[in-house]
Design a protein around this nucleic acid. Structure first.
Lengths: 195, 195, 195, 195
DNA sequence: CATGAATGAGCTTTCATTCAT
DNA sequence: AATGAATGAAAGCTCATTCAT
């Protein structure tokens, strides 16, 4: 299992730093190798090709991302609480990993369609997880019974992704986490049923 | 004025078709020229370089986009109506221009940072326009007085952009315009003041 | 006879200015046309191709050059006097035509071998003329009877050409004509017979 | 140190052959690579760009040239002897490297102004060296006390350069070295003081 | 396991020349 | 005679990947 080898993660972390500092198109395999302190050829002992590094990067970080989100949500009862915690921690994790935020919000989106398709596959788990919470909210009567959970999920993800991207493009110079309550409130109002 | 010459638009339209059919990274200048039925060199009589074609493409189409949206909104009274018309026509224009939709929602986002920065400048006019409507809604008392119009704008744009992108990634196989009422309702509920 | 048409000389003079100001490799046919105040295509009514402009330029200017030199030498008696007048006027003509000096001493030498071969053919008349004076000096007993006039001619031309080129490369900032007496004296000492 | 790697010199020698055989403007990087028996890309492991090959070529060969000249001059006492040895060996080295002679006397002079400026910087060392010998000759009383060593240097270099170029343009079909004594004698007569 | 020198395919842009008007 | 829009060939350089050591 390659993920157990220390160099596997060493290369991925080097890729994050290199991409964040140089940009996606200025990141050559040789730069990642240099950042990782290994030879170019060594990369290919751990990854099939350049694309494989980027997909693996996204998979590793995203799995970690989802895991953390799931953890904080575990104890929450209502869908509204879960949504709030999800948004807040989504923002928190990005805030705590500024370079990763640059890579996922800006740089990796410049990749070609094939890579983005595979990235979307990884993202799908997160999107499904969001939709699952929304569906639970509908079932519990907390959200409107006719809520289109697919659309609602696209609204929710589109919103937090846009807000996060804007924050990164503005050099991360304001407090992203502080926006979470307002964002959650705006979104939840849309989800609630009419009384 | 280059925009008055027919070949200027001929090249831009050829670029849209070529990028939509081959993808951003598979689009060479020679392919655009071939699609336009002219020689490679002729491109450079109308555009400074390859990047100039893409920026001009986005500017031309986006200007047209905003103009159309503004037209349909012109007669509307309430902010809610305006928002609804904006969303519906945003979706309608993309639906009516399937290839352009592919180019703007997917392909051009793969461009390098410099090009995307310039695309964002063009986009800014649209974002400002959205925020303007939201601000009017707050002032007229239609929306919550404490609505954060900047966040609300990011929510609105993030939502419709995500929904449009998902639709394109799903090969545009369902009716995007039909989603507009639901999307508008979801968003507007978040904007309204509490009674 | 094309040389009688005013545009023929107009184009050649435009070429001198353009090459002097932009350098040989930065001189496109379109730039010469612009400088001449005519359309690109018009050039080809007077010249076969770009090379033809440059050869014609050199021929015209060189013919003029040789003619002037011959004029001032006409009245002189001794070979030494002739040589001195030749050197002084060679330098004088270049000094009076700073742009032409840049073109002939620096820029045209960057041309390809074919063009330079044809330029050398034009130059040959000048070289022959020089050698003729040297031969007369030998015959009259003024120069050493065993003087190798071919080598002497190469020495003479190599010297004044190098001095002129150095002067142009130094932005023509000192008085080239003032060097003529010293240069002539140095050269003539080599040509004189031993007493 | 790149100069210690065998491929560095392999590429330079391939460049000399390719330029001599095809001419400066017909020499593409791919041709040099082919002549060197390596891939195009390998060139760029040893040289920054095409221009760097040509400058390095000139630097390497010129350094070698100057070194050899200095060696043979080392044991000589008088300035006249030194000048003679310099001329003879200048001609000898060119005679022994016919292709290099074509490249330095004809082809590299077609290069653009930037390259020629850098070539002139290399050449300057040689010119300074020549002037140094002349100055020593003046100080020792061997040459005229009022000899303008700057002009004399231009005369000396202009002469041998013109003679060498003429020889190359005549397909090197006569004995260049055999001309050295005559050339040296002609030049030295100009330098000597009057008795 | 690790290295890093070598490979070679691929693309934007320029500009001399033409020719329909 | 004059125009100038259109043509299209041609080449330097990068970088992901390989493989002998």
């Amino acid at each position: 299992m390659r993920r157990n080898k220390p160099k596997y993660h060493q290369i991925i972390d080097a890729a994050v730093i290199t991409i964040a500092e140089n940009g996606y198109h200025q990141t050559q395999v040789s730069k990642i190798a240099k950042q990782a302190g290994i030879a170019d050829g060594t990369i290919y002992l751990y990854f099939k090709n350049k694309e494989d590094i980027l997909i693996s990067l996204f998979q590793e970080k995203m799995a970690n991302f989802i895991e953390k989100i799931k953890e904080v949500i575990a104890g929450k009862q209502t869908a509204a609480e879960k949504i709030f915690m999800m948004i807040e921690n989504h923002f928190r994790i990005l805030s705590q990993n500024p370079k990763l935020a640059v890579v996922t919000q800006l740089e990796l989106r410049q990749s070609n369609q094939e890579l983005r398709r595979r990235i979307n596959n990884v993202l799908k788990e997160y999107l499904d997880f969001i939709e699952q919470i929304l569906r639970e909210g509908v079932e519990s009567g907390e959200f409107a019974p006719d809520l289109d959970t697919r659309l609602a999920r696209q609204m929710l993800f589109g919103t937090i992704d846009e807000i996060a991207t804007t924050w990164v493009m503005n050099k991360q110079k304001y407090d992203l986490v502080a926006l979470a309550p307002t964002v959650a409130k705006l979104l939840l109002k849309g989800f609630l049923g009419e009384k």
